[in-house]
Simulated scan of single mutants.
Amino acid sequence: MPTHASTDVIAGVLSRPDLERLREELPRLAEGCVEAITAEVPGYRRAFSGELGRTIEQAVHQALAGFLNLVTSAGSADPAVPMKPSIDGAYLLGRGEATAGRPVDDLLAAYRVGARFAWTDFSAGLVAAGVDAQAMAGFAGVMFAYIDALSASSVAGHSDALAEAGHTHERRRDRLAAALFAGADLDQLDRLAQNASWDPPATLSAVWLPAEAADTVRRALDERTLRVGEEVTGSDQVVLLVPDADGTERRRLVKRLATYPAVIGPARPWHDVRVSVDRAQRAARLGLGEDVIDCEEHLADLTLAADPQLTGDLRRQALEPLAELPPATAERLAETLRLWLLLQGRREEVAERLHVHPQTVRYRMQQLRELYGDRLTDPDQLLRLVLGLSAPETTARP
């Protein structure tokens, strides 16, 4: 920002009539700055048409007038006071440019072009007024310090506007994520998606993972990925709703999550992602693995755990022929039968899994055939036995 001493120097070498002549030239100078900016900064070639063009031209005029006010106010008690309107105007200009979608680089380029044009014009007037080289250098220093101050204020306005817009955008997406998590109806979800400028994908997959890992993972995913925070899940876990994570994309997602204790739910139509949320949560509760768990790889386990009472009844029926045996014997025979059914009677493989001799397997199967009889040849009964013997023991009724 220009110093009090530097403006005193300029005020001392320019007469009041000289300053007034410069002030009279402001409209012409502002128009010339606008033409130079339009010609040299591509982003502004269309910006100076209509009402927006008049607003920006007025901002240029205000900036130039503010500089002359600064110079003519030398000796005032507070040298920052004359700059305040210009600084405030530059801040509002920066906010407006952000709202219009123009990058801050274009705005800074416009300041540079405008400053160069204004200095060329001002310096010609100074030379005509007989100002010496030292004073000219002082004038240039004050002017470019002033432009730097305006530029900084515009950058601050631009940054603040983007930050506020980003916060608003993120809050709207958070509301959409919470509604999806809650299973809201389609009409409500459509309204929230439109309000958040969120383009719905074909499907969404729910990913449960620790809160501390969520932001890192999210940055590597589709930009439409939504985040459901702990305040909504009611735990130290968050849920990421990942677009179109099926096929090849699902395999990539699994790889990205390989270092995290995450659970991936199935891909479902985006408005029905609550199904994916629930299934992933059930998989997490079952403890199906220590690393990343893909629900699509554990459908049988999830099916058996879906109705504990039903699978408990299946298990009870499957173990019924062993009820009169000592518990340890019943357990050995039940596991032998389960593996025999799963391995389609391949005795050597069953023995290897059980760490026993194949003859032991043969002896046990003789016992089991006596106990189960026709059940071991009836396809429907065999299906019930496989499901019942595979059901978690905790689901069996006492």
Rank of each mutant, 00 (worst) to 15 (best):
T3C: 04
T3L: 01
G12Q: 01
R16A: 14
L19D: 06
L19H: 08
E20V: 14
R23I: 05
E24F: 09
L29G: 09
G32T: 12
V34C: 01
E35K: 09
T38N: 08
T38Y: 07
Y44T: 07
S49K: 12
L52G: 09
Q58E: 14
Q58R: 14
L64W: 00
A65M: 11
S73V: 02
A74S: 13
S76D: 09
P79M: 02
V81N: 05
K84I: 13
K84W: 12
Y91W: 08
G101E: 04
G101F: 01
P103M: 01
L108Q: 12
A109T: 06
R116E: 15
R116G: 14
F117K: 13
T120H: 13
S123K: 11
G125S: 10
G125I: 03
A129S: 14
G130Y: 00
G130S: 05
A133E: 14
Q134P: 03
Q134W: 04
M136S: 03
A140Y: 03
F144I: 03
Y146C: 06
Y146A: 07
I147G: 02
I147V: 15
I147R: 03
I147W: 04
D148K: 05
A149G: 05
L150N: 12
S151V: 03
S153M: 00
V155G: 00
V155A: 11
G157Y: 01
G157L: 04
H158V: 05
S159Y: 04
A163R: 06
H169G: 03
A177Q: 08
L180F: 06
F181V: 07
A184H: 10
D187E: 15
D190Q: 15
L192K: 08
Q194L: 14
D199M: 08
P200W: 04
P201S: 01
S205A: 15
A206L: 05
A206Q: 02
L209N: 04
A213H: 13
T216I: 08
R219V: 09
L221Y: 01
L221A: 03
L221N: 00
L226Y: 02
E230W: 01
V232P: 00
G234L: 04
D236F: 11
L241N: 02
D244T: 13
A245M: 00
R250E: 02
L253T: 06
K255E: 10
L257W: 07
V263A: 02
W270C: 05
H271P: 02
V277F: 00
A283G: 14
A284R: 15
R285E: 10
L286V: 00
H298I: 08
T303G: 15
D307V: 15
L314P: 02
R315P: 00
E324I: 02
P326G: 02
R332A: 10
L333N: 11
L333P: 08
L333K: 11
L333G: 08
A334C: 06
G345W: 04
R347L: 07
V350W: 00
V361M: 11
R362S: 13
R364C: 04
M365E: 10
Q366G: 12
Q367V: 13
L368Q: 03
Y372N: 07
G373L: 06
D374C: 04
L376P: 13
D380F: 11
D380W: 11
R384M: 07
R384P: 01
A391I: 06
A391D: 02
P392E: 13
T394Q: 12
T395V: 08
